[in-house]
Design a binder for these strands. Structure first.
Lengths: 200, 200, 200, 200
DNA sequence: CAGTAATCGAGACGGTACGTCTCGTCTTAGA
DNA sequence: TCTAAGACGAGACGTACCGTCTCGATTACTG
């Protein structure tokens, strides 16, 4: 051995093209954003849109699900920064993030897809929850627990139920509320309604 | 003329078989209950399962969506009778109905399907909302409005927001709560948590 | 049973389209005549040229070989009528048929294909020999045997060897002779050269 | 200048590996001998069998044909020595060489390939004829012309036709004769049958 | 002996065709 | 007229090779 090897040796042969990988992800998200469901998505369409051979896709992902999971994962919008001034403000910020994430064309469709197809594709669901849902859930829990600690919320509050009320109500509006964009003051109204039962 | 005609003339030729129709609906529900999404559902699979020719299906429904809507509609569980003794009791009854409807194998899958695929199949969504969601929504609204009238709920309550909180929280648990059957006391806990902010 | 059945019952369902079958054969021969070898022939090209789905081809022939055999078989030009006046005349007629069969664009290519690919596709070979070669071989044998009987040929002639000499020499010219069409007097010259050793 | 240069300067860089070249040729002949046609031959299979990168093949031969021609050329069995005692003996020797060349596993397959694919690959044909067929044809012609000169054959013999009869009859047996090895006395019988029409 | 340059193996690249599958429609004979 | 059966054109599936390209490593000559 003449030169020290740095951990994992680079595999022989031409390295995989990052450009192709990105193009595939982009094409997938484009097609999803154009309203295709996971089942309507065709690998051939993705390949053609990405200007890529089918082999190049199958070399990286062995099935459509894996590709979709990876594609959706790249969209995990960063959590909004929380001001920390008051529980009410932070809750509104979190719900506002949920509201606007569904505002962008892509975000909305991606969310729809994610929620829609999740049950039928359990592995997709699992991975998506881990990457996209869990962090938001955790942030929400922390805000509520902080509120309990600071006395802004009732000391005997059922934290899990509080989370369910806030997320669920927001989600309900997203899904079943009147069509079109959600009103800008919705997060504030939901938080106030929820706080009515959670304040000390 | 040998047999009396009853108003509208019966069309000539062999009448459509009711047996085939039922078999098709049953096969469709079976397949949905086995976890297929609307897109995975294949007319050929339904025909084969029902022991029926594909033509027989296409003659009755021009596309998969129509068939699925009709199939789901046959499952519209009747609304539970409300005791009317108290708003709390009636709300618990309504949420309990939502909980158990998702408990039976078929009901759960059908609900999942309905919720999942709705966005991608707007006409399905529309008809499903009309037949299955609207009546429940209406019942919920009546109970809440009655509570406002009787003084059990705050007079300045935002009725729509109250509905969103109750339905949304229940729905949230159905979708994101811990796996397995929902706990029996969940409706009661949700109602109590919600009433904390809605009582006068 | 109301009507007598005529032997094999017609199978249920829509009968296979003769039109499609013919279009497929035609397309195959066209492509072969355009110079494609069996291996260069693509089922997709045939399907597209014939205006037919690939399924419709695979439903009838399970592989390319079978299709090619059937296609070639439709070209088996009828044997020329033999005058019977003299062995020499009949032999010239037979060899002339071999010569002109290679004259038509299609015939030539088909023959080439048949001879070329035969060894690599033994089943093709076998079936092709049976349908196209055997009848010609038989006719040749009969002429020679008649010549032996009438005294036009040597009584101790090795009939098989005579056939080999006549066919082989003709074939040799087809394959290795100077390019372009074979000269019109070639059959006559071959027959005369061969008869020099076969006449009594 | 340190070392004398031998005419053409050796190109810079690493010289091509003779070992790889041989391995490629060997692998090609192996695969052909295993019954593959030129079209079934895959460069990838050759590369893999030879333990060589595809580049190493494409650097030397720009296409499959060229490779096959070179591979076949390495097999050009030497012409058998002719005793010269009599035309009959020499003809038998030549035909005997044709017969046995088809006996060895490799030789047979190579011959088959050469004859089969020739028409579809004209450049292959041309080069193969030059290297393998032409020398044999020349030898045959010389023997026959010598026979005419010595009086063993008819003075007005059509030499070209005589060649066609001898080669063609032998070829006919190779191609259309009964399966299995050709009988040992076949060359003798053919020569005698042919000489019957060629002797003075 | 260090530098230069063509070669080596490996394997990824954008493609094409494969043979299979399922789609929704069409076309039969029989009920 | 409706039914079951099943053929139809269409097109996506995942695989195998094509011929090209890009890697790091190797191997000879040159300065």
């Amino acid at each position: 051995m003449t030169i020290q090897e740095s951990g994992a040796a680079r595999p022989a042969g031409r390295p995989r093209s990052e450009k192709a990988e990105k193009a595939i992800i982009e094409a997938t998200l484009d097609l999803i954003a154009e309203g295709m469901g996971v089942s309507e998505l065709s690998i051939e369409a993705i390949a053609s849109r990405a200007g890529v051979g089918k082999t190049t896709i199958y070399r990286r992902w062995s099935n459509k699900e894996d590709l979709v999971v990876d594609a959706l994962s790249t969209l995990k919008a960063p959590l909004p920064p929380l001001s920390g001034t008051s529980v009410r403000d932070d809750l509104i910020t979190l719900l506002e993030a949920m509201r606007t994430e569904s505002g962008h064309q892509r975000g909305r469709c991606v969310m729809n897809i994610a929620m829609s197809e999740a049950d039928r594709h359990p592995r997709l669901m699992e991975r998506f929850v881990k990457r996209a849902i869990e962090p938001r859930r955790l942030a929400l829990r922390e805000v509520i627990e902080r509120g309990v600690a600071t006395g802004e919320l009732r000391p005997d509050l059922d934290v899990a139920m509080g989370m369910a009320i806030l997320s669920g109500t927001m989600m309900w509006h997203t899904k079943w509320g009147p069509a079109g964009d959600l009103p800008a003051d919705l997060p504030e109204r939901i938080v106030d309604a929820a706080l009515a039962g959670m304040a000390p």
